[in-house]
Design a protein around this nucleic acid. Structure first.
Lengths: 211, 211
DNA sequence: GTCTATATACCGATAGAC
DNA sequence: GTCTATCGGTATATAGAC
């Protein structure tokens, strides 16, 4: 924790950050209300400012925490496998599980993408760069040992992340669309972390495998 | 055009709607400023209200126009092919081209997804439902004739759209991340509509094809 | 139809009592 | 450390002159 008045009451700060993560994910940085975050945290607005500084500092902290968690889960998932195929499957599952355990994460990410990442602080950019480097290394290894065909690492990485983040977030919107779609709706799978991981891993791995 | 004062000056309304699409895509509904939209359109704020009503009505109009364009392009792309594989490839290319020709579209869509689509007006939901129905029909046909394996239509549809929209929007953020990534950056492809269409079609089709 | 000026409301941030 | 009260700035929307 890196806030000015963080000598004590670590758990008050935790409560504020959790409330802020939800609020920023729901309404975005401009849409989120400091009053609302304070109310969710069960405290007063002036006290929030006392603990965590202004709105921008709180937002930067929320972002960094979410991405660092995703990053460490991806790294440890990759370390437990050796083949490129298993490593990629493990990385995909790690991101899908992070998104499911912390529903703010995919929404924060999608929002940042739409703004072009212009307000991302350097520590967050570094964390995102680290994840991209990990995926890149897996793809490169698979291409060199003949497992994968010669795909573009950047586009493949963006597609993998886009698939997982979108699947993790789109269910609510999809449920509003389905009543207007002229299709039978019996056998649709629930969108769980496991199903997302399987869907993305099966299609991407099948799509980039050397035939 | 369905605005109150639309008896004349159709092109003034066009200018306003185009300015609004950019502004909403850049800053979101809450972040966009009516003053800014009026300034981009080269007119006065009071005149904007005179022509198109309030901010919410303008936003609903921008959304509907973008989705209807995507919808009709997908439909006509599908109609010019007969096999499930060619139809899916055509639909993917149509969405990618729509996103490239109208950069507001993917960003508006990503923003709506993060809010759960709670503010989407019914005509937009109908249009999105129509596109989903089209993709569903292609997948079902391919599954029945043995071209595709038995994939979940909803998850596959969400993955396809997420891949295209994310790839169409993420380049700016990616360029900010790349300097922090420990990878060589010579041979990365530029993210054009054609490259997006090829990347998504190749991976998804390869991933869902019956082996 | 087009403008200026303004009403009204809200929000981020802080001052200051306890 | 925790609160109430409020300042200052800014946003949507409209009134009203021309």
């Amino acid at each position: 924790m890196t806030f000015p008045a963080s000598t004590r009451n670590e758990e008050t700060i935790r409560t504020i950050v959790n409330a802020a993560a939800e609020s920023f994910a729901e309404d975005g940085f401009v849409g989120a209300r400091v009053d609302d975050i304070a109310r969710r945290a069960g405290i007063n607005k002036a006290l929030l400012y006392y603990y965590v500084g202004d709105k921008a500092a709180l937002y930067a902290h929320v972002l960094l925490e979410a991405f660092q968690q995703a990053c460490s889960l991806v790294d440890s998932a990759v370390d437990t496998h050796s083949s490129a195929e298993e490593q990629l499957r493990g990385a995909i599952a790690a991101v899908a599980r992070t998104a499911a355990a912390n529903p703010s994460f995919p929404r924060l990410m999608l929002r940042e993408i739409t703004t072009g990442g212009t307000s991302l602080p350097e520590p967050v950019l570094k964390t995102m760069g680290h994840i991209f480097g990990t995926i890149c290394r897996i793809l490169r290894k698979g291409i060199e040992d003949g497992t994968f065909r010669n795909v573009d690492p950047l586009m493949t990485h963006i597609q993998i992340m886009g698939s997982i983040l979108f699947l993790s977030t789109a269910e609510k919107t999809a449920r509003r669309i389905l009543p207007f779609a002229p299709v039978p709706q019996e056998e649709l799978q629930p969108i769980t972390a496991d199903n997302i991981a399987r869907q993305v891993a099966d299609t991407i791995l099948g799509g980039i495998r050397q035939q």
